[in-house]
């Protein structure tokens, strides 16, 4: 499969953007139904995006806009890039060490967010950026440890080989540890500390408006696809060989993850920065470490 196909069609832009919107909608719809509300129609995230993109933005100091354009685009590009590395189809391009590349690319978006927060020169943006940075560090320890455990157990840094070779016990524990990390990476309850509306408005995004916010929301939607996609693609060891079937299985698994994450978000209050960090260092890291130990001895 040519790499332009992966980047532009599947699982790249053409798949990731509508899928991201679908996931954002599903999150809102499930939350609404869990609260006995009607909830938005399925096209709502698309309309939100169009609305944000066509709004007249605030005038900013010259030269500032370039960052608001470049940083979300960089984050968007990197996140879509990380998607293309996912071992969904048997024919997916898989290079040596693409696991490391994946981690590097998926971390671009949080770093861009921290930069946006600091660049916004708003006190709320800066506090949000600090929180985002702290949480990124807290969550990456279990995130990377779990990935190392998977890589060690399957003896490869190739995502495709990890997906097909990782032993069951390690795979289950490590994927659970990865799942633990998703609420923080997607800024969901109970770890929505970095964008705690009632404390610091939208955190790092406070000063973003119009297309600047629209671009970021798009990135966020693709982040959903990439991160849930990582777990979905690593969860199933076998591939049917039929591209369509594999793609559908992957999409369905991703959506199941959205449901799980949303239900957890709907059933919890927001924790504090210290409590969230402590949770990740204790439980998230503990689980990831367990996966590593299991991979070492089994």
């Amino acid at each position: 499969m040519p790499s332009w196909f992966a980047l532009l069609i599947f699982p790249g832009f053409l798949y990731a953007v509508p899928m991201g919107w679908l996931m954002l909608w599903l999150e809102r719809k499930i939350l609404a139904r869990l609260q006995s509300r009607i909830g938005p129609p399925f096209y709502q995230p698309f309309f939100d995006f169009i609305k944000l993109m066509t709004k007249e933005p605030l005038r900013r100091a010259s030269g500032e806009d370039i960052f608001y354009l470049l940083l979300p685009l960089l984050a968007l590009g990197a996140t879509v890039g990380s998607l293309t590395l996912l071992p969904i189809l048997p024919s997916s391009a898989s290079a040596v060490g693409d696991l490391v590349l994946f981690v590097a690319l998926v971390e671009v978006a949080p770093i861009c967010l921290v930069l946006l927060g600091f660049l916004s020169r708003s006190i709320f943006g800066q506090v949000g950026a600090i929180r985002e940075a702290t949480l990124t560090i807290a969550t990456n320890l279990p995130f990377i440890t779990a990935l190392i455990a998977l890589a060690y157990a399957s003896g490869s840094l190739r995502l495709m080989e990890i997906a097909s070779n990782a032993p069951l016990a390690t795979r289950a524990i490590a994927l659970l540890a990865l799942l633990f990390c998703l609420p923080i990476k997607l800024r969901l309850n109970p770890f929505s500390v970095a964008n705690a509306e009632q404390e610091i408005y939208q955190g790092a995004l406070t000063e973003l408006d119009g297309w600047r916010l629209g671009l970021w929301e798009l990135t966020h939607a693709v982040e959903w696809v990439a991160l849930s996609g990582l777990i979905a693609s690593l969860a199933v060891p076998w591939r049917s060989g039929q591209a369509i079937l594999d793609a559908i299985l992957f999409a369905l698994l991703s959506l199941v993850l959205v449901v799980v994450l949303t239900v957890i978000a709907g059933a919890t209050a927001r924790l504090k920065l210290l409590q969230a960090s402590r949770f990740y260092w204790r439980w998230g890291f503990g689980l990831a470490l367990l996966a590593l130990v299991v991979s070492l001895f089994l």
């Binding site: 609260q35 309850n189 927001r270």
Partner: peptide, 16 residues
């Protein structure tokens, strides 16, 4: 209070 805690479902339960 539930809203400030970021607990949407509890907020909705109260307001219902």
């Amino acid at each position: 209070a539930a809203h400030i805690l970021g607990f949407q479902t509890l907020f909705m339960t109260c307001f219902r």
